[in-house]
Design a protein around this nucleic acid. Structure first.
Lengths: 218, 218
DNA sequence: TTGTGTGTCAAACACTTGTTCGTATTTTCG
DNA sequence: CGAAAATACGAACAAGTGTTTGACACACAA
């Protein structure tokens, strides 16, 4: 008498359960299904749930609240988002590797989207940052090794003693910034290398090193 | 599980919830958690569930039965895809800091869910790993500094020369594993410290160090 | 010492929710 | 047609379950 319940009740129940679980990652209660399947009695729903269980379409655990489980079956992409799918939070940034810091190579060449790292924002601050791969051992005394990834926070200037990424000409390096005899230098942290005068015409500060990742799976 | 149960209650609660949902595809009730986490009062569990929700580890819906959802994230809305509209891939793992590696402190005390790091699985391998915070300078010659996070891949044995995390008694340390005069030792990488004989009765290998994160935002 | 906070517990309460029961309406089919 | 089955309803019950409250023990600082 009501209207067009085009589909059978048992089908509406099943469809609704699937949809509800998909949307809420949580099984509906019998009364939720009442509303969703346009049934007015919980006992009706109860009947169908038992049938659906017998049909093997759902797993129904008598007495347990919100305990319907979709039985993985057939047809529509059975992606059944179990409960608790894991996603990566929004407080994480993906940093693609912008290039290798090494002698003679310009960086900013391109980003290598297959070479990246995820970083917790709270650990590096909210400023814009980028990722570089270290090549060479010129910063070994600062415990920055060949192959390490360094996270650089973009900035134009820096403080005395900061470890920074800088351009010298079109060559990029990591060095410690400081002064000697009143003049600015870039200091390698390796006795085999000489300090480099920081020439404001030729040199440019890219940013400060705020993090380091090293992966040594051999 | 088994012998290391002296963990904090909130940790047991979280671990149990994760396990339960994983096994049953269904969220446990407060009283289920009571049993699973060795707590005798539902209100204790209730307290921890609220905390876990605040920490963003689960989604807890007041009043709803069996409605816990694992988040491992702050989920939906605006998931900050940094570059373009790339989706954050599922090949990233969240590692919670399990404790500080430092003299005299047992680890496995508890996981600090507010202290964590995201790691690209491809960079550390697919084995189970955990995160530790380094305290002290005993590995400075290996360029592992005080405050660094190290990623440890669980394993029972290791090769000569590997840098590993190990338990000595109930004290955890990072050291390099090796032999001297035909006998196994744990070698600090700092001249101020002495090699420690690796006594198989007292020592236990936790895993191999496969990664390192350092954050030096000042 | 006192006081404050934390962790835990037991008990009680109230609401959600699965289940059952009796009955009415509709459909099926001999 | 008429009986049986299927479908649906509403109400009531009982159990599972989330939540609150108050109390106790302990650690730690003032």
């Amino acid at each position: 008498m009501s209207e067009l319940k085009s589909t059978k009740s048992i089908d509406r129940v099943y469809q609704f359960v699937k949809q509800y679980i998909h949307e809420n990652a949580l099984s509906p209660s019998v009364r939720d299904i009442c509303k969703g399947a346009e049934l007015k009695s919980t006992s009706s729903v109860h009947t169908y749930l038992k049938k659906l269980d017998e049909l093997g379409l759902i797993e129904y655990r008598p007495g347990m609240r919100r305990a319907i489980i979709l039985k993985n079956t057939d047809s529509d992409e059975a992606e059944v988002t179990p409960l608790g799918s894991e996603k990566v939070p929004s407080n994480v940034v993906r940093l693609n590797c912008i290039g290798k810091i090494t002698a003679g190579q310009p960086i900013y060449a391109h980003e290598d989207y297959s070479d990246y790292v995820y970083v917790n924002k709270s650990l590096i601050g909210s400023n814009e940052s980028f990722l570089l791969r270290v090549s060479g051992t010129s910063m070994i005394n600062a415990h920055i090794l060949d192959g390490d990834y360094i996270i650089v926070r973009k900035q134009d200037s820096c403080d005395e003693g900061d470890i920074i990424a800088a351009l010298i000409g079109d060559e990029a390096t990591v060095k410690r910034y400081g002064h000697m005899n009143g003049r600015p230098y870039l200091f390698p942290e390796n006795d085999l290398y000489e300090p480099i005068p920081f020439d404001t015409e030729d040199c440019k500060i890219l940013g400060k090193v705020v993090g380091l990742h090293r992966y040594t799976i051999n």
